[in-house]
């Protein structure tokens, strides 16, 4: 039998001030509760995926087919325009667009996760955290499926047409690192957006516009090298450095013929990606902890 003491909001507010020990305990408590309640996350994310794909004939294939078709369209439109400037344009496009869509999709569904999870939040004793987390996990699942599809295509194309098509190089091993960093970065941003959307519903529209702007600020279609002075917008965007891990292993890191050209993300990319991921998650978590007990009153 366990004894739980819930402390009122007034007392929580009174005890402000930076106490590392209190934060350490909070993190420990949250991790323990999350591990105990991991089934909620699994079931919520699983439910999402099942509902999305179960009842269509092609099922999970759609998760891969839609972005593929989208990329086919963009490749046809822009690939011809940029054929001299960007080597293997479809690969460039895919390796940026897929992680970007993970980020944008997570922000959209994770941002409103508490609002749409109102029925759960107001009837069951669950950590609010599990709702955004399961939304981001659903998007991460899609990301992994799409990456697998791309890898499969690269390998097939590489072995069938060794002269024209690229082959994978050793730099593929930074891809999982890129996925993990992007996941942490995204989760932090989602926690902040979720708080904003819960308190001010119309921020959702602002977020949609900002994510759209980020699309152009991450060089999805036009690489910053072709942007002239406007490239500052891309280089000032932390998301660009996260996408570089994907481009590094899938686009730059691939090679034609026999010439092995293994390229690794440079020091700047590493530093900005790691620091922005940690900063984003820390800030997101602090914001979350501040409002953790008040979300339910705002739904």
């Amino acid at each position: 039998m366990e004894e739980r003491t819930t402390i009122g909001l007034a007392e929580r507010r009174r005890r402000r001030g930076l106490h590392p020990a209190a934060w350490a305990q909070a993190v420990r408590d949250d991790v323990i509760r999350l591990v105990r309640g991991r089934f909620v996350v699994g079931n919520l994310a699983g439910a999402r995926l099942k509902v999305r794909y179960q009842r269509s004939v092609l099922g999970f294939l759609w998760a891969v087919l839609t972005p593929m078709l989208m990329i086919a369209v963009l490749s046809i439109v822009f690939g011809y325009m940029l054929r001299r400037e960007v080597d293997r344009f479809p690969v460039y496009l895919f390796s940026g667009l897929v992680p970007y869509q993970f980020f944008a999709g997570s922000l959209k569904s994770g941002g409103r996760s508490l609002v749409s999870g109102y029925r759960i939040m107001s009837r069951f004793r669950v950590q609010p955290f599990v709702l955004p987390l399961s939304e981001v996990l659903v998007n991460a699942f899609n990301l992994l499926l799409e990456l697998l599809a791309l890898l499969g295509m690269l390998v097939l194309a590489g072995s069938w047409f060794p002269v024209v098509a690229p082959k994978l190089s050793a730099s593929i091993i930074v891809l999982p690192v890129g996925v993990i960093l992007l996941f942490i970065f995204t989760l932090g941003i989602v926690l902040m957006c979720m708080t904003l959307v819960t308190y001010y519903r119309d921020v959702e529209h602002v977020i949609a516009v900002v994510t759209r702007a980020l699309y152009f600020m991450t060089g999805i279609i036009i690489p910053p090298t072709l942007m002239g002075e406007a490239d500052i917008f891309v280089y000032a965007n932390p998301l660009w450095y996260h996408l570089q891990f994907f481009r590094g292993s899938l686009w730059q890191g691939t090679y034609r013929g026999a010439a092995a050209a293994v390229t690794w993300p440079d020091a700047q990319t590493w530093i900005i990606a790691v620091v922005s991921a940690l900063a984003s998650f820390t800030l997101g978590y602090v914001v979350y902890k501040k409002y953790e007990h008040e979300y339910v009153y705002r739904l």
């Binding site: 039998m1 366990e2 004894e3 739980r4 003491t5 819930t6 402390i7 009122g8 909001l9 007034a10 007392e11 939040m121 107001s122 009837r123 069951f124 004793r125 007990h293 008040e294 339910v296 009153y297």
Partner: peptide
Amino acid sequence: GIYTPTAGRVRVRGL
């Protein structure tokens, strides 16, 4: 434990 009270404390022993 769904609503954290604005002030005061709630103590619960048991599942």
